[in-house]
Design a protein around this nucleic acid. Structure first.
Length: 647
RNA sequence: GCCUCAGUAGCUCAGUGGUAGAGCAACUGCCUCGUAAGUAGUAGGUCAUGGGUUCGAAUCCCUUCUGAGGCUCCA
């Protein structure tokens, strides 16, 4: 007999060799129907594997991440089986579970393509195979045998994968007529998969390398109940309604014109208004925190970028240098603001008492992003960074770094970005060519980031090879409405540019010292931030109150009940004077159908601006008198909060 | 740059080889009038672009441009 310890610490005794599935059956028949995978002594594994010794176990249902993982991984195998049936000669590369669903990379026989039109028949085959309730059978296999199996099929992908695996550590999983190299975890059988939807097809390079062959990647998602799939698809549709590209058009915030050039956003009046107010908000905050605002031109002599290293790093794939009538003279559209700020630092000599110098600019930069990478406002070719560079002494570095983290937290809180992740990006130690500067400098910079993050108690993932070419960084990442991750805020420590530009300050010892540079952005770029802000707030927080600023953001009743209710509530108020205020044709009577079309009322109320007063009258309650826009926004917001229990 | 798909009126879309359509928006009347679609009429398209097949192309084929979802890239 062995002891099985459940998460609640209760102990059950079973014969050795019992499986997770049997334990589940023993606990309750309903659990047995829902359970998908099991963790045995900390190791995620199949429910059908025998447990031979005493163990702590945890059973996973679809509601658990581990359950979903097994479910979608098995779905991936099921799709592979269906594809193998429908497309003889197909070869399989890798097919993992992902955050929402699964994919499989396949190499199709010459001349075959899979498009979305083929999805229904693949889905149908998958469901037919699933209904057979074929068990997933695990088999340990020697490296030699495994290689023979795939070499016979002339499958270079699996062969390559197996060659990298250790002998004795290789397993195959078989369901029905399909066998795949796989380390698991899988469902007991395919019958759990009741609903399948293939989502899209895409090209993907083998092993993610552009030089390799491009495979066909098919994305899908599956569920244990048809209803869950329907709900998921409904959720996706809802999400698409909040897409910033759609809203940007509807709300007349921004547009693109092929004639101007793709990836070059045109800010329409309302969008420009929104952006200016955001810039204003941040500028005030920066001044409070000891920053000075500067401005720099949009171009610079190539020599500037040669010194900074940008020229060698980016000239080839970037906008081409601009020639002048002068022979041999070249300018570049600035891809970054740093070198300009560095030259401003060099304008005069600084004492150690002057530091830190915190230089901020809403600096527009130009980068020739790859054609296929352009994406709404989140990836563009001309964008404005809320950029700043802090020049400080070594003893000030950590405090400055922490102050910036605090600023990021403050701003994210103000705009309700509560769900963000933090990532430390270090250099790739095997690829020195990607970076400038000495190992010594890099070690210092990376150490400073790691220590500061530790001291701050921040939880951050660490990624190697993701650093900027001049220094490591701490990034703040927010997801868009469809779950794509975008970097907004970034803080980067740089010992290299100060060295290259020979920056210095006079220390208390009367010697010259080199300052350390911190590059940082809070919004990241105005474009990307506004894009995510639109998606995060649409239909969710139509009115926003910050401690000292009132912001009314996009209002549209098309997205969900919450916005609809707010919209209804606003109808109880006479806000004509507010709208007249926002309308250039002041004094003209606003027509009914015009009012309903005003898609957003954007106001950043500032106490010192007295003209931002509205006279408000609530229907049925008579005149409420004049009040500031801020007060009005607060009042409406309170009412909304009271009326709707929003969680 | 690569893979799959798409582009018809300002917007949302119908139209699969035989005379370019609808709703909304716009404009002009009329009726109403403070708050989510009053009413009649008018105007609006080289069917993204260039080429080809055909008696005939929005429709089939190719080029280019742009967009969508991925991959690669991302300062």
């Amino acid at each position: 007999m062995i002891n099985i310890i459940l998460p609640d610490k209760s102990v059950r005794k079973y014969d050795a060799g019992i499986t997770g599935l049997d334990i589940a059956k023993d606990i309750s028949p309903r659990l047995a129907k829902e359970v998908l995978s099991i963790t045995v002594n900390g190791e995620l594994t199949d429910l059908t594997r025998p447990i031979e010794k005493d163990a702590d176990i945890m059973l996973h249902k679809f509601s658990d991440p581990q359950g979903k993982h097994a479910f979608w991984h098995s779905s991936s195998h099921l799709m592979a089986e269906a594809l193998a049936t429908l497309y003889p000669g197909i070869k399989f590369a890798i097919g993992p579970a992902i955050e929402n669903g699964f994919y499989y990379d396949v190499d199709l026989p010459e001349g075959t393509v899979i498009s979305e039109n083929d999805f229904p028949k693949i889905e149908k085959t998958m469901i037919e195979l699933a209904r057979q309730k074929n068990p997933f059978i695990r088999k340990e296999i020697s490296k030699k045998e495994a290689l023979e199996y795939y070499e016979k099929q002339q499958d270079q992908y699996k062969t390559e994968l197996i060659n990298e695996l250790e002998d004795g550590n290789i397993t195959f999983y078989t369901q029905g007529n399909f066998t795949d190299l796989c380390r698991g975890t899988h469902l007991p059988h395919t019958g759990f998969i009741k609903a399948v939807k293939l989502l899209n097809v895409a090209g993907a390079y083998w092993r993610g390398d552009e030089k390799n062959k491009q495979l066909t990647r098919i994305y899908g998602i599956s569920f244990p109940k048809q209803k869950m799939l329907t709900e998921y698809l409904e959720m996706l549709e809802q999400a698409k309604l909040r897409d910033h590209r759609k809203l940007g058009k509807e709300l007349e915030l921004f547009t693109f014109s092929p004639k101007v050039g793709m990836g070059l956003p045109l800010w329409l009046p309302k969008g420009a208004d929104l952006r200016l107010r955001l810039e204003d908000f941040l500028t005030k905050e920066l001044r409070k925190r000891g920053y000075v605002m500067v401005m720099s031109p949009h171009i610079g002599n190539v020599d500037l970028y040669k010194t900074s290293g940008h020229y060698y790093k980016y000239a080839e794939d970037s906008f081409r240098p601009i020639n002048t009538p002068q022979e041999g003279e070249e300018f570049m559209l600035k891809p970054m603001n740093c070198p300009h700020h560095v030259e401003m630092y060099k304008f005069k000599q600084y004492s150690y008492k002057d530091l830190p110098i915190r230089m901020a600019e809403f600096g527009t930069v130009y980068r020739y992003e790859q054609h296929g990478e352009l994406h709404g406002l989140t990836r563009v070719r001309s964008f404005t960074q809320d950029d700043a560079h802090v020049f400080c002494r070594p003893d000030q570095l950590k405090d400055e770094f922490k102050a910036i983290i605090d600023l990021v937290f403050y701003v994210f809180k103000v705009f309700n970005f509560n769900d963000f992740s933090t990532q430390i990006s270090l250099r790739d130690p095997d690829n020195h060519e990607k970076y400038i500067g000495t190992n010594e400098n890099w070690d210092k910079a990376e150490k400073a980031i790691l220590e500061t993050v530790e001291e701050k108690g921040l939880e951050a993932t660490v990624e190697t090879g993701e650093a900027a070419f001049y220094g490591p960084k701490l990034d703040f990442i927010v997801k868009d409405v469809l779950g794509r991750a975008w970097q907004l805020g970034t803080i980067q420590i740089d010992y290299n540019l100060p060295e290259r530009f020979e920056l210095e300050y006079k220390g208390s010892d009367n010697e010259l010292h080199q300052p350390i540079m911190i590059h940082r952005a809070i919004f990241g770029s105005m474009e990307r931030f506004i894009a995510l802000m639109i998606e995060h707030t649409a239909g969710k927080f139509p009115l926003w109150i910050t401690p000292d600023q009132a912001v009314i953001l996009p209002i549209s009743d098309k997205f969900n009940d919450y916005a609809k209710k707010v919209s209804d509530l606003l109808k109880n108020y006479d806000i004509r004077s507010l709208i007249d205020d926002r309308n250039e044709k002041i004094g003209r009577k606003i027509r009914d159908n015009e009012l309903k079309r005003i898609p957003f009322l954007l106001v950043v109320g500032e106490k010192e601006v007295s003209s931002n007063t509205v006279s408000v009258r609530k229907q049925g309650q008579g005149d409420q008198g004049s009040m500031s826009i801020e007060a009005f926004a607060k009042m409406v917001n309170n009412e909304v909060e009271n009326e709707i229990k929003y969680n």
